Amino acid sequence: MHNVLLKWLGRLLMSLGALLLLATLLFIGGNFWVLATTAAYIERQPQQCRPTDVGIVFGTSHWTRSGVRNPHFHARMRTAASLIEHSQVDHLLLSGDNRTQAYNEPRAMWRELYRRGVASEQMTMDFAGFSTYDTLVRARDVFQLDKTLLITQGWHLPRAIYIGRALGMDVTGCVADDATVNVGWHLKLREWAARVATLGDLYIWGREPYFLGTPEPIELKERAPIDLILPSLNERFTAP
């Protein structure tokens, strides 16, 4: 009886070890795949980001849980306002969480960007961007975007770009980082897990957005030809 129990425990431990090894390989492999397939679509300097009609700014809280200003929020707003100022983007889709009346990410983004000089007619708010996945599905199906620039932190962009391109959108990314801010290990770990979960959302369980709604295409003024925009960009970024 004792020998049978030992054999059973041995097999159980071997099975658990094999499952742990498989999970580890999937975790590492999934992250490597997302990073490797999106690296070519990410620009780390705003002046190098692809000019396009609409840029998507991903929502996050204006404040941290400790009650201080969220540097990630302000880095996104600063980058988005700069892209508008230098005519690389004509319009901004502000997509974030507004599950309750007391928490409204799009409205906070709108106010901050307006304070930074972005005109109200250059901004559209999406109040149902409850997740990165929801934001991109709604950008495609509700706001009728097939080509766009994604504006968020460098650690977030690979997942966002992977989702967008998997949905058939022509997306590139513009990094909105703050060089003075260190990304904590807990945030990195959460993002590593989210990348793997994204593969499941897309290819296994067929995730649907929390709320889709009816189409609301963003109406834009006609964009100037790119050969007229680029000279002015070069002059602005090389001016003393």
Rank of each mutant, 00 (worst) to 15 (best):
L230I: 14
W205P: 08
F27V: 00
T214F: 14
L26M: 11
V181T: 13
K221L: 14
R11C: 09
R78T: 12
D90Y: 06
R69T: 02
Y162T: 00
H2Y: 13
S61A: 14
L230S: 06
I84A: 05
L136I: 12
Q101G: 04
V181Q: 14
L19N: 06
Q45R: 12
A176M: 04
I218W: 09
I56F: 04
L12M: 11
N104D: 13
I84M: 10
L19K: 06
M123D: 02
F211R: 14
P225E: 14
G59R: 03
L22S: 14
L13H: 06
D90R: 11
A23T: 10
V89I: 11
R195M: 15
H91M: 07
M14N: 12
D141H: 09
L167I: 00
K188L: 13
L150S: 08
R50N: 01
L21P: 04
D227P: 00
A194Y: 01
T60M: 06
L136T: 04
E105L: 04
G168M: 07
H72M: 10
A75Y: 01
R190N: 05
R50W: 02
Y162W: 11
Q144R: 15
V54N: 05
R165W: 01
V183A: 05
T38Y: 10
T64W: 04
H2E: 14
R115W: 08
N234V: 12
R50Q: 08
E235R: 15
T24Q: 11
G129W: 02
G154W: 09
V171M: 06
R140V: 03
T100A: 04
C49V: 00
V34Y: 03
R116K: 12
Y203I: 01
A39E: 13
L83C: 03
D126S: 05
R111K: 14
A102I: 01
V175W: 07
R76W: 02
Y103V: 00
G29N: 09
G17H: 09
E85P: 00
D227W: 15
M77N: 05
A194D: 00
D177W: 08
F237N: 01
S15I: 13
R69C: 03
R99A: 11
L12K: 13
S61I: 06
W33G: 06
W110D: 08
S120P: 14
L83G: 02
L212K: 15
I161W: 07
A128G: 07
Q101V: 07
L150T: 03
D227S: 12
T79G: 02
D201N: 11
W185T: 10
V183K: 06
V142S: 07
R138N: 04
R44C: 09
V196A: 03
V137G: 01
F58D: 01
R76Q: 03
S61H: 09
A81V: 00
A128T: 05
H62I: 07
